[in-house]
Write a protein that binds this DNA or RNA. Structure first.
Length: 655
RNA sequence: GCUGUUGUAGCUCAGGGGUAGAGCACUUCAUUGGUAAUGAAGAGGUCGGGUGUUCAAAUCACCUCAACAGCACCA
């Protein structure tokens, strides 16, 4: 089959003709020998291709060198193959499955009778370095599906056979070879195993289900990280260490915020300091609710099973609910969510269209029996507090309400220093309730809102679509924020609900004295107060802004002579509304500074003979090695000013 | 829930078939010291829980609980 010539456009805009059969390597060599040496792949119309692959069509070409960001994907993928070869070389009866590239690295899942040990990882890494040193070229062969299947069957690679079975019969498959070893793989790959380089590290072993399905067999997964050079690897490992230092479970203990214990898996013991943060956050949210016209309510903790049957939760999530049977054989459930309770409040009495929208908020304490393996500090617990609210409105009010909620969510996040937000619209899933027309209408309104959110944000807010990821009762927005070290957390959500008002028979009376079903919108901003505090702890690395810090300042005396004045400083700051503690212990100032710094107290106020004499204070701020001197009055003014919550500051400044 | 690992004083960790050890924290005493650990003395645990093997178990086996990592789950 003689292919005609084709033309390629280079990044600088020049266009050149090439003969059929020309490979990426040929093109690179045509430019310069050194470029050919450095190149690892080409990008044709934005898609990466093997260097050795004959180019099949015209398009925009870029030569990708090893230092290119796009080469990182190849390095990681190559590394996964090298890992698989190393494992099979060491333990030939291990079966291979798949080994994709993930954020920061790659993994490969193996089926092996014995689990891998940490020592095995070292052995494997050594073997990998040998394979990389061999620098065998990656070569691609195209096999028919049947040949490939027969081949892997003969090898006993049952997982590969299963993968091939899932591919259409008339499709050809790529087999990538590296030395003696080969694997079924879509590609592309770098030129040779040497392309992986040295900047990789096997990180951990863990179980993982075959094809991600918990009904399937569990495989042994080896995680690795790989980078273009040692410096990047070092940076990544450093970032991991930083993340570990910020771990809210560790800081929670060090800052005396909360604890967990065996008798209460997944439920939090909030200590005085932690509860101050919790209350600080709650009070902030309360003020924001007030500002946005919400009414706070409180629905019962325990309700009869019948109510949960009506809501549908009994059928769907019964195994995740805490239930109890009383002496007289009545079955109750601890609330896993607040919506049924709020619908009862809505239904109590006759509602007029004039009342709508009704915005009902609750800091609802809910309990869910989460799978034991899911629990993780404050981030995933069995008892938590939702900053929940339900907006009952008319269909016409839906758009405006979604936008108001969006406004509340975004300003809240920005008050905590989260500026990088993604809003995702999740649309109808396969399993769903409601009519197609209902979904059409709701989704089109939500899409409109989404577009407006993006348009109004000056490019600050990114939006995405999650097709099929909506709740069974309606489409939803998910708000994802990015913390100080670049990790994403989904917190807020706005969900339209078709099902619940109908299930409970909730209605209002419209202008024509007719019964109408209200539209119900569920929304949360923090999501779980517990989890949000966990995120805040890690985001701030324990360095809470002054308005949230449980202890805002410690007054530490340098000598006992300063105690009297020290007490005056404490009293003055307390009178000004500051959360202050005194440390008049018989210890050196160095010792006190160290202790309160470790406890992440934002301001240490040292008081010695000099300060007592002059009526001044010496303030050392957390994270600084220096201190500033000022009069007590100046200190009170600057600290109280800084301790004003951002919403109150906004209110004050706007009038 | 699944796979693997771990569980010794408040914290971090050592030890390991013959009845527990360090550092920090704590208490007391001395020290009154100017911004990340002053010194000395003292007190503190029966080794996550249970059952078994053994003359003897924290140490071995089994069961169980919890935590950690990942997977699955997250209304």
């Amino acid at each position: 089959m003689a292919q005609s010539a084709f033309s390629l456009e280079f990044p600088d805009g020049t266009v050149r003709e090439f003969d059929a059969g020309t490979t990426g390597k040929d093109v690179a060599e045509g430019i310069s020998k050194s470029l050919a040496k450095k190149s690892v792949a080409i990008s044709l119309n934005g898609e990466l291709m093997d260097l050795a692959e004959p180019i099949a069509s015209s398009g925009k070409i870029e030569i990708v060198t090893r230092t290119d960001d796009r080469a990182l994907e190849l390095i990681r993928h190559d590394c996964a193959h090298v890992l698989a070869e190393a494992v099979q070389e060491l333990w030939p009866d291990t079966k291979v499955t798949i080994g994709p590239v993930i954020e920061n690295g790659f993994y490969y899942d193996f089926d092996r009778a014995e689990p891998f040990t940490p020592e095995d990882l070292e052995t494997i890494e050594k073997k990998m370095r040998q394979i990389i040193a061999r620098n065998d070229p990656f070569t691609k062969q195209v096999w028919s599906r049947d040949d490939a299947k027969a081949h892997f069957e003969k090898m006993g690679e049952t997982y590969k056979v299963e993968l091939i079975d899932a591919i259409d019969a008339d499709q050809n498959l790529n087999i990538y070879h590296q030395g003696e070893w080969h694997d079924l793989c879509l590609g592309p790959h770098g030129p040779s195993t040497g392309n992986v380089g040295n900047a990789f590290k096997l990180m951990s072993v863990a179980g993982a289900y075959w094809r991600g399905d918990s009904d399937n067999q569990m495989l042994s997964r080896i995680y690795g990280t790989a980078w273009a050079d040692e410096k990047q690897l070092k940076n990544y490992l450093f970032m991991l260490e930083e993340a570990q230092k910020r771990d809210h479970r560790k800081l929670g203990r060090e800052m005396d915020l909360f604890h967990f214990q065996e008798e209460g898996p997944g439920v939090v013991f909030w200590h005085a300091n932690g509860w101050k943060v919790f209350q600080g956050l709650t009070n902030y949210m309360r003020r924001r609710l007030e500002e946005h016209g919400y009414d706070e309510v409180n629905a019962p903790q325990i309700l009869d099973k019948a109510l949960w049957q009506t809501s549908g939760h009994w059928d769907w999530y019964r195994e995740n609910m805490f239930t109890t049977v009383t002496e007289d054989d009545r079955q109750f459930a601890i609330k896993p969510m607040n919506c049924p309770g709020h619908v009862q409040i809505f239904k109590n009495g006759l509602r007029s269209y004039r009342e709508l929208p009704i915005k009902m908020a609750e800091f609802g304490n809910v309990h869910r029996y989460e799978p034991s393996g899911a629990l993780h500090g404050l981030m995933r617990v069995r008892g938590f507090t939702q900053d929940d609210a339900h907006v009952f409105c008319t269909a016409e009010q839906l758009e405006a309400e979604c936008l108001r909620i969006n406004d509340l969510i975004l300003t809240t996040y920005s008050d905590f220093g989260f500026g990088d937000i993604v809003v995702k619209l999740s649309t109808r899933p396969e399993k769903r309730v409601g009519t197609e027309e209902g979904w059409d209408r709701a989704e089109s309104i939500m899409q409109k809102v989404l577009d407006k959110i993006e348009a109004d944000s000056d490019g600050r807010i990114r939006t995405e679509l999650n097709p099929g990821e909506g709740a069974f009762y309606g489409p939803k927005f998910e708000y994802v924020l990015r913390d100080a070290i670049g990790r994403d957390w989904q917190c807020g959500t706005t969900q339209v609900d078709f099902a619940l008002p109908e299930r409970f028979g909730a209605f209002y009376i419209d202008q024509n004295s007719e019964k109408q079903e209200p539209v119900m919108v569920h929304r949360a901003i923090c999501g779980s107060m517990e989890r949000f505090i966990g995120i805040l702890i890690e985001h701030f690395a324990g360095h809470f802004p002054l308005w949230l810090a449980p202890v805002q300042a410690v007054v530490a005396t340098i000598t006992t002579e300063a105690e009297e004045y020290g007490q005056k400083v404490v009293d003055t700051l307390k009178a000004a509304g500051m959360r202050v503690q005194s440390d008049f212990r018989n210890e050196k100032i160095n010792y006190k500074v160290r202790e309160h710094s470790l406890a992440k107290v934002p301001a240490i106020i040292a008081i010695g003979a000099r300060e007592a004499e002059e009526g001044t204070v010496s303030i050392r701020r957390l994270g600084s090695k220096h201190q500033t001197n000022m009069t007590l009055q100046e200190a009170v003014e600057s600290l109280t000013e800084e301790a004003i919550a951002p919403d109150l500051k906004r209110k004050r400044d706007s009038g």
